[in-house]
């Protein structure tokens, strides 16, 4: 497998993981409501675990969304994917994404490292370690950065792929 295929694969796995995380959240929320309402025993973990899962799913899935061209773009000009201007504007957009990612990774990593070394936890019942929660920023944006570079490479070799239509929609 080439590097491009590896990155594509990782993004896809991360994206699917993110999708199932949301299902897991739905299940734990429902569990919480049932045990709280019918058995009067609210859990101490559902709120915290589900918001952590939400943050993870959001940033973990970002690269997958980019790969599938699902990010929302204002479509005013350069509709034709074959033109040079479109390729240039697309590359510019990807470079902007790379820059944002680099900032998020650079500062997200140093924050994570600092909190990890100090052994910080959340202030809640669970005392979730910060290394497990804060790492989603640099991992998610790192992956998005790699995927952007891959897309950049794709534009000038294969061409601009169409936005994948949602499977089976209409």
């Amino acid at each position: 497998m080439s590097i491009v295929q590896v990155v594509d694969k990782i993004s896809e796995v991360a994206g699917k993981l993110a999708a199932w995380l949301f299902v897991l959240i739905a299940l734990s929320i429902s569990y919480e409501v049932v045990v709280r309402y019918f058995f009067n025993r609210p859990t101490i973990w559902v709120d915290e675990v589900s918001t952590i899962a939400q943050v993870w799913a959001t940033y973990l899935g970002a690269a997958y969304i980019l790969k599938r061209r699902k990010l929302i773009v204002v479509e005013l000009v350069f509709h034709d994917t074959m033109t040079l201007t479109r390729k240039i504007s697309e590359s510019f957009a990807l470079l902007v994404i790379v820059c944002v990612c680099l900032i998020a990774v650079r500062y997200g990593y140093s924050e994570w490292l600092d909190k990890t070394l100090k052994g910080a936890t959340s202030a809640s019942f669970l005392a979730t370690p910060k290394w497990a929660t804060l790492s989603c920023i640099w991992i998610g944006f790192g992956l998005l950065c790699l995927q952007s570079i891959v897309e950049l490479w794709r534009i000038w070799t294969v061409g601009i792929p169409d936005s994948e239509k949602s499977l089976g929609a209409h």
């Binding site: 929320i29 589900s50 918001t51 939400q54 959001t58 940033y59 998020a104 929660t133 640099w138």
Partner: peptide, 22 residues
């Protein structure tokens, strides 16, 4: 710029937002 990752985390760390994916 260290505010950026903190803000990114802070924003998604919300139980209210969960209503959208659910």
């Amino acid at each position: 710029l260290v505010a950026v990752p903190i803000k990114l985390y802070d924003t998604m760390d919300s139980f209210e937002l969960l209503a959208i994916p659910m």
